[in-house]
């Protein structure tokens, strides 16, 4: 347990020291969201209609940019060997990495998204659901990201590759999250959508670290 927490603490400390890495991901999130009103015109109804999809798709794209932080540097500087020799099973190591990634990427997005929602004229009753979908969905994004990042350790063009691998796997998250926010905007019940998101999260918490652990094992061999 202490090794698990020590890995999270190390990654958080690194993220704090290299603050620009995290800030760049969040800045990308903000900038891309701002491109939509500029491209579509500032019609409030149109923006309100597309706001859930824009926020979610953009948060996924921004997350893709952050995955190469997960293992690529550790694999290049020999740190991955040391992590593997910590005695922590590789699946738990992957889970610790996912936790640190969520704390440095998912959580800040959770805070930023409602503010960006205002700029897109998101319906007032949808903010709570937006945050709820992000709270349930972004941990899954981090978990799948760890799987993808573990798979591409040592690959050429790893940054693009991880997006190509992970994005199709996240389609269910996108569908349920956006339809939940749409339902909230239309004044419908969002319970089923959120339950689906929660179910995917509940399945991903044990399964994704297992897959990532297997991928790391292959990367070390």
């Amino acid at each position: 347990m202490s090794a698990f927490l020590a890995v999270i603490a190390r990654d958080l400390r690194l993220a704090r020291r290299q603050g620009t890495d995290v800030a760049m991901t969040l800045a990308f999130f903000v900038v891309v969201v701002a491109m939509f009103p500029l491209g579509l015109g500032p019609t409030p109804e149109l923006l309100a209609r597309i706001a859930p999809a824009v926020l979610w798709v953009t948060s996924l794209l921004a997350a893709m940019l952050s995955f190469d932080r997960l293992f690529q540097q550790d694999s290049e500087d020999g740190g991955l060997d040391q992590l593997a020799l910590s005695g922590l099973p590789l699946s738990l190591l992957a889970l610790a990495k996912a936790c640190a990634h969520w704390l440095t990427t998912g959580l800040p997005m959770l805070v930023l998204a409602p503010m960006l929602g205002i700029s897109l004229n998101l319906a007032p009753q949808s903010y709570g659901v937006l945050v709820a979908t992000l709270a349930l969905g972004t941990p899954v994004v981090s978990l799948f990201g760890v799987v993808g990042a573990a798979l591409v350790v040592g690959a050429r063009r790893a940054g693009v590759l991880v997006a190509l691998i992970v994005l199709p796997l996240l389609i269910p998250i996108l569908i349920f999250a956006v339809s939940a926010i749409d339902a909230a905007s239309a004044g419908l019940s969002v319970r089923v959508h959120l339950l689906f998101l929660g179910a995917i999260l509940a399945a991903a918490i044990p399964l994704a670290p297992l897959a990532a652990g297997a991928a790391l094992r292959q990367a070390l061999d």
Binding site: S2, A3, A6, A9, R10, R13, L14, G78, S86
Partner: peptide, 25 residues
């Protein structure tokens, strides 16, 4: 001790050693 030193540029020398030892329990 591998080919690579497994040091993180952003941490001090001391922190690097301490972090590694903490992770190794």
């Amino acid at each position: 001790l591998g080919h690579a030193d497994a040091l993180k540029s952003a941490l001090t020398a001391r922190e690097n050693a301490e972090t590694a030892l903490a992770i190794a329990g």
